[in-house]
């Protein structure tokens, strides 16, 4: 390693010239180099988050309490968390299944190379196409006068809205979220599928395994950390999203980010510290799923060496 060679060689020289200073000047300079970044991260990422996290454990008068956390378990707040979790789980699972089959199709399905590069490029765009415009797109497609709704009615005589379907609902939000969940899954899973070695398939075939046996006993056990990990990432991705839901449903669908948005705007919970607890709950849920994701990814990488 070049880096290891350079440091010991440079250090003694500096030591002899800077004996007057108590601390090695070089070390100070080294740490000053990332000081701007560290100060930025502290001020605009870490301290604001810690402020909310600690605020969740205090009363407005500054006394330590667990009451805010306990208050999270009231029915109205719990139902917000519950619907958020359900939307996130459903869109993550849906995105994961469809995304997996798409990734499988372009890697192992034997389709032409241009299909693969085209789909990957499009996934890069679609995974970043979220927020308010995505809500507009689905309203224009599956809303009451949307293209699909109208075509189904005029051509097939099928009234989508008479089945109880509504784009401004749990199901509507889920399929809208899947528009960015599927491409994200494709983008993350394609390299994992590329890493599947041809020899594994050949070895299992020589040993007499069927395609089904190969997938069940070789491929899926290797892939499952990637699959699970990415699904968790999709879950966290959906859980923190607000713009799409807000533009799609206004405040009619009571998910956690929308509740928090209303709380920040107008203190609808009538307790600022309960608002902090609400934020803490979000951090805990996205945090746990991300930690699991990182852990699963390190497991997945064992096979990609």
């Amino acid at each position: 390693m070049r880096g290891d060679l350079l440091l010991p060689r440079a250090k003694p020289e500096r030591m002899s010239t800077a004996t007057t200073s108590f601390i090695d000047r070089r070390i100070v300079v080294d740490w000053l180099g990332i000081a701007p970044f560290m100060i930025f991260a502290l001020m605009f990422l870490i301290i604001p988050t810690l402020y909310l996290v600690t605020g969740a454990f205090f009363t407005p008068d500054g006394e330590f309490t667990f009451k805010n956390i306990v208050d999270l378990f009231t029915p109205s707040i719990m139902s917000a968390y519950w619907i958020s979790i359900r939307v996130s789980v459903a869109s993550a699972l849906g995105g994961a299944v469809i995304g997996f089959f798409l990734a499988w199709a372009i890697v192992l399905g034997g389709v032409p190379a241009w299909v693969r590069s085209g789909l990957l490029t499009f996934s890069g765009v679609a995974s970043n196409f979220a927020g308010v415009p995505l809500a507009f797109a689905f309203l224009a497609t599956l809303g009451r006068t949307g293209l699909v709704t109208v075509l189904l009615r005029d051509w097939l005589g099928f009234n989508l809205y008479s089945t109880g379907f509504n784009i401004l609902s749990f199901f509507g939000l889920t399929i809208t979220y899947m528009f960015f969940q599927i491409p994200l899954m494709v983008l993350i899973l394609t390299p994992a599928l590329d890493g599947m070695k041809r020899e594994w398939r050949e070895a299992s075939e020589i040993l007499g395994a069927s395609t089904w046996q190969y997938w069940r006993m070789v491929a899926l056990p290797i892939l499952w950390p990637s699959l699970m990990g990415t699904t968790l990432l999709l879950f966290a991705n959906a859980f923190g999203a607000i713009a799409t839901a807000y533009a799609l449903t206004g405040s009619s669908l009571n998910i956690v980010p929308i509740l928090l948005y209303a709380q920040i705007r107008g203190d609808v919970l009538h307790n600022a510290n309960l608002g902090y607890a609400l934020a803490l709950g979000m951090i805990v849920i996205t945090g746990i799923s991300n930690i699991l994701y990182i852990w699963l990814r390190t497991r997945a990488e064992r096979w990609q060496k």
Binding site: T49, Y51, A236, G240, I242, P257, T286
Partner: peptide, 16 residues
């Protein structure tokens, strides 16, 4: 970290 902490939480912290 910004991928883990939702944007709405970060901006809530700023406002406080």
């Amino acid at each position: 970290m910004p991928l883990v902490i939702p944007a709405i939480v970060i901006v809530f912290g700023y406002l406080r």
